[in-house]
Design a protein around this nucleic acid. Structure first.
Lengths: 198, 198, 198, 198
DNA sequence: TATGAATGAGCCTTCATTCAT
DNA sequence: GATGAATGAAGGCTCATTCAT
């Protein structure tokens, strides 16, 4: 039904990631879908609107994903498994949705000027949810059950997020194989540091 | 002497950081310097060339900085101090050159397409130097002197770089005060994890 | 039967009057009829053809109206009544068909370029008929019967037409009430000037 | 100095009159000036702005002209001469500035939608001034000095304006020679009707 | 050094039109 | 009768770039 529409969105996502909002040209998006530029306007009212829809989609996916993670975590027993679950999700351990993730991260770091404010506040909202609903409870329970050292939870969160976002840069530069190894290294390091080994 | 030239470069840097290569307009750069767009061409061949010069400047500064750091490190006694020295440099602890650092990082993550390859290889070269000349020796010596746990040095490096690059995202979103606190948190965490606490 | 067709024509008339031929958009015409733009092409060959049909309709109506007026005049006794009958018709005294009249007048003054010649010659033909069949006979008979001063009939005609067309501008700018008053004023003035008061 | 700018304005005026705001194309304006379309943007920020400037120029000219007419009238002795002075000005008796006059009148009757309100109110202001400063005083004095019949001045004004605006339509359709004759006919008619012949 | 003026290339967008369903 | 989808042609506009002064 909405086939062309979806194909446009996929092509646009890809080009926005590669070239940024300003760098991406509608001609190229159209070419990738094998239609003419004018035809884009049957499906989207403007380049801005196309970008906005893409961004909102991602935002909604990420928010929906928080619920999914919440459930997954409840089905896991240990703090270690739970944290690893969150870690894996964030770092795109499996390389599965790299394009979408890159769109999300490029938008986050360098948004097109006409959406700066909205994106900024959306992201802050998202991170707040991620912390309040997932990261913080998991860590607190871990401490409570003596699985984790009784560190200041806030500090662990800062480190967790920093590590995870650091992986994104690696994602850009490392070969897939090296990247996968690094993911493991970083995780093990993090875990060693917070587990209550006594 | 080169006053206008330098003012142009400063303004360009700022706008390239804010809007990206494609998003930045020569008119705005000129406006910021209080000259007309046409005048830019007396000082620079083209927009591309202006960007390239800016990038090369940064690259050279970073390379030169490696030597500076090398010296600083030699003057410091402990592994802790040395690592902290490197950490501080990278994370822009003092917020001093944030614009330049942002230019460097934006270029690294999302380079303009006409420079993708060069930037990519320059960055890999830089990181290799940073590791080989600074990070690796410091860690190895730290281990050797029993100041650090006898971890696999490569792993510590991966973590170090990941943390440090993670701080960049924070830099974008946190208020200065929160950012400074986080820098400390991350550092303390890292240090606790690698020091040989006996 | 031709319901949609007629509704399209009505909507088109309205928009051509408001925005002119170039300014009027088929989308808006379609919207006003609650159909899609593509559907217009089931009823009309093209935008040009739609306009042409509208114009020809008006032209035919105006020509037919000449016959109607001719009859009306024959049923009236005095030159005063007869002239007033023509005056009323032209000046849209009753505000009844203002949209159609405006279409006619906008087309007359500022026709779309592809119809300039045809419209021009149609109008001249119409005015010639109006004068030869209605205005001139009425005036000549009025003079003959001593109801009118023995002015040069051609001059009276020039004045009559000028006054009547001048009312059109007023029609654009005056409020309905003021307009109706002005119509009367102009008529009385005209009549005073040509009646044979002794 | 502002040569190109002025040539653009002249060409634009001409095309706006001929084709209307929407019908006029920047390419054609540029062609008429022997420059490229893009160059127009060095002189004007947009098509709308170009039109606005043209309109404001005309408006200011018309307003300035009211002062000029005011002086001319003061130098004339009789009401007849004075009224004829106003009549001549309005009807473009000499065919001198026909393009500008046509721009003014086309804008008045069928303004581009983005300027409808402004133009409307500007025109009402202008007409008010014309009446209050020129037409009304001249007529009142004429009545006072017994040169004019003691008609209701407001009625004479309505007729005067109607006649004058009616001439505009003629201007569109008549050949220059016929037009000049008609101007005289209308004037004589008007004058005969208001002069105090006893 | 700087700029007024102009331009080529290309971008986003609009709009009338077509055509298969 | 009507429409979803697509398109050609063109339109307004932007922007890096040039060049004579």
């Amino acid at each position: 039904m909405y086939l062309t529409r979806e194909r446009i969105k996929k092509a646009a996502l890809s080009l926005f990631v590669k070239d940024g909002y300003e760098g991406a040209r509608l001609v190229d998006i159209a070419k990738a879908v094998n239609i003419k530029t004018a035809s884009l306007y049957y499906h989207f009212e403007s380049k801005e609107q196309l970008f906005i829809e893409l961004f909102n989609d991602m935002r909604n996916k990420k928010l929906a994903n928080i619920k999914v993670l919440h459930q997954q975590i409840n089905e896991l027993g240990s703090a270690k498994e739970r944290l690893f679950c969150l870690y894996s999700d964030y770092s795109n351990r499996g390389y599965e949705h790299s394009e979408e993730l890159n769109f999300w991260k490029r938008s986050a770091l360098f948004p097109p000027s006409f959406l700066r404010e909205k994106i900024h506040s959306d992201l802050i909202d998202y991170q707040k949810l991620f912390i309040d609903l997932l990261l913080m409870p998991v860590i607190l329970e871990g401490i409570h059950s003596n699985e984790l050292k009784s560190h200041d939870a806030n500090k662990s969160i800062v480190v967790f997020l920093s590590l995870i976002q650091g992986m994104f840069s690696e994602f850009h530069y490392s070969q897939p194989k090296a990247y996968k190894e690094k993911i493991v290294v970083v995780w093990e390091f993090f875990w060693d540091s917070i587990e209550n080994s006594k």
